[in-house]
Nucleic acid binder design. Structure first.
Lengths: 344, 344
DNA sequence: CTGAAAGCGCTTACAG
DNA sequence: CTGAAAGCGCTTACAG
């Protein structure tokens, strides 16, 4: 029906007013639930609105209203389909819901240009704030918007060249804990498998890896270090290559969930999952059900997302205190793979 | 700084016009990239805009512009954190991006009231269209909005009492294929574990289960049927209970990814994962890496999301053809758990 | 309690 | 090529 006749015109407050025989302003009062309206007129207005199928236009009311709130926030993630991002998103959505706010989601795919592009788009739509898992390493470009009153909270990765709130984890400490855990089980030849070093968290986790070696006074064997792994497949190949070395590693530290999964695949393909130890950074679904279970340093995505959203809304509600940089603890979850002892 | 001085006022086109010494309309032309502007004036305008940090207000331009497009669509999912939903979302986002459109995401948690509430909110914000994985079973309430020109594409579950586009899978056939696969391996005592029957896909999958039995002329043993499983934990308990029966099932058909995971947990806890066969509906990450690998009937979330978004944008671009109901094939992926033979 | 006027920031429709 | 006027759908600020 609509296909044949084309879209029908949307009724406006003016139409409702005409049908109800009142002024536009009275309709506005009724629609916005202002109590000081003659009940008889209010009923007329409501009847007219129902009859016409009137729906308020929030974008129009936003334009004129003084509070300058649109009831929308942006959420820019590394990849909305990644389980860490997805869990974080859900937590942000839950908090936003309690503030009658909708969430615009975008994936950055570690592309700094995409970050600038998408944040601009969201700002031009006048989102009230932004929760951002950044891909760039210079956030000065956000300053003007931040000063204009748009809320801004960084998650997972800290703001650079910008003073803004953030919720992150201590990547250095988490990574060091993972490596030390392996050392406690006798390992010294521990490989590092990580993402590109353009990603700050990758740098920090590599830093943690090195510090654990320093603390033990053991030298890092650079042949056991593989950076730049951008996919499960890349991690699988890198793992196979490492295990094919003349002096292969006895343990792996995989610094991100996709890399951990790729390494698992390689170990299983080689039948080495019970002989080569592994600890991963980031928990992932079913890690406990693999055989052996995968020992990980977990970051609580749900908690990070919730805290970030809460900080954002406190800012929108007028909190002008100095920027908060919340660091959420990581926790090492032993499940088997990290407790495989080094060969004698 | 911004904390102390409060948000600075945002410059408008009027401000840019004043600084550049031109009319508002000329600024509008430059901002919108209209070519017929004197290059000298255009440069003045751009300089003024840069100096003031001018950013266009898209919500204001939307209001006046004729095309009535806001460049935003809604995506209502069962739960944005579920891997199926997350993969679908990412596919929708990718298509939306090519249409310069942002995506508003919401989770419905199988709550019909939430569906109506969130869709209303999105409509009041004048989204151009909606991709919806519905939780209600009556979508007549969407008709007015649909007739008003808002695009509407259902995914995963079909529209009821409403003529709209949809992209779904053949749940009946997929479930029947899963059960027949188990029967081919000699099973007859096949348990059904499913979600609440308020969910249409749960009903359809149960239907497929029954049809497979009918085709073989085998009666369904109702003691082996468990509905209403709403969580991994519920599925774990239900599986344990089934396996504790005097005449336990020799195989399980788990009709949804969380239920499959819950059943896996129970089987492993009982050490029965190599003796009790299992086929799940929905693929999930790492299903291939469990031991045994989990045989599933997979639905291609990426494909479903992409098709839905493409249909939506074709509607927004003027396609007025009759509603399309695309059915995407499921595929059975044998990985081990479904190929365990029935005991003699 | 009610409404006519002005305006939010921008674009349309029209003159020049 | 440029701009003054009107208007998108609504709210503010002000009279009555």
């Amino acid at each position: 029906m609509s296909a044949a006749s084309g879209p029908s015109a949307r009724p406006t407050m003016r139409d409702v007013a005409a049908l109800a025989g009142v002024s536009l302003k009275t309709v506005s009062r009724v629609v916005n639930g202002i109590a000081t309206v003659d009940p008889i007129l209010a009923t007329k207005v409501r009847n007219a609105a129902d009859k016409l199928g009137y729906r308020p236009n929030m974008t129009a009311s936003n334009l004129r209203r003084g509070d300058r709130r649109t009831g929308a926030i942006g959420l820019l993630l590394q990849d909305a389909a990644n389980p860490f991002s997805a869990a974080l998103m859900r937590a942000v959505e839950n908090v936003a819901r309690t503030h009658q706010t909708v969430v615009l989601v975008g994936s950055l795919d570690d592309d700094p240009a995409r970050e600038r592009e998408l944040s601009s788009t969201l700002f031009d739509r006048r989102v009230d704030g932004l929760v951002i898992m950044p891909s760039s390493d210079d956030h000065a470009y956000l300053m003007a918007e931040h000063n204009a009153g748009t809320g801004l909270v960084f998650v997972d990765r800290s703001p650079k060249h910008l003073n803004a709130d953030s919720v992150t984890v201590d990547n250095v400490a988490g990574a060091a804990a993972a490596v030390e855990h392996l050392m406690e089980h006798g390992h010294r030849r521990i490989a590092f498998l990580g993402d590109v070093l353009a990603i700050m968290t990758a740098v920090e986790r590599f830093d943690g890896y090195r510090r654990a070696f320093e603390r033990r006074g053991v030298a890092v064997d650079s042949r056991l270090v593989a950076h730049g792994l951008r996919s499960i497949e890349a991690a699988t190949s890198a793992t196979s290559a490492l295990l094919a070395l003349p002096e292969p590693p006895t343990a792996l530290f995989t610094s991100q969930n996709l890399i951990t999964i790729g390494a698992c695949r390689a170990l299983r393909a080689l039948g080495r999952q019970r002989s080569v130890a592994m600890v991963g950074f980031d928990d992932f679904p079913l890690a406990d059900m693999l055989d052996p279970g995968v020992t990980v340093v977990a970051q609580d995505a749900e908690r990070i997302g919730r805290l970030a959203a809460e900080i954002l809304f406190s800012r929108l509600d007028g909190d002008r205190s100095p920027a908060r940089n919340v660091v959420v603890d990581t926790s090492l979850i032993p499940r088997g793979s990290g407790e495989i002892a080094a060969p004698l």
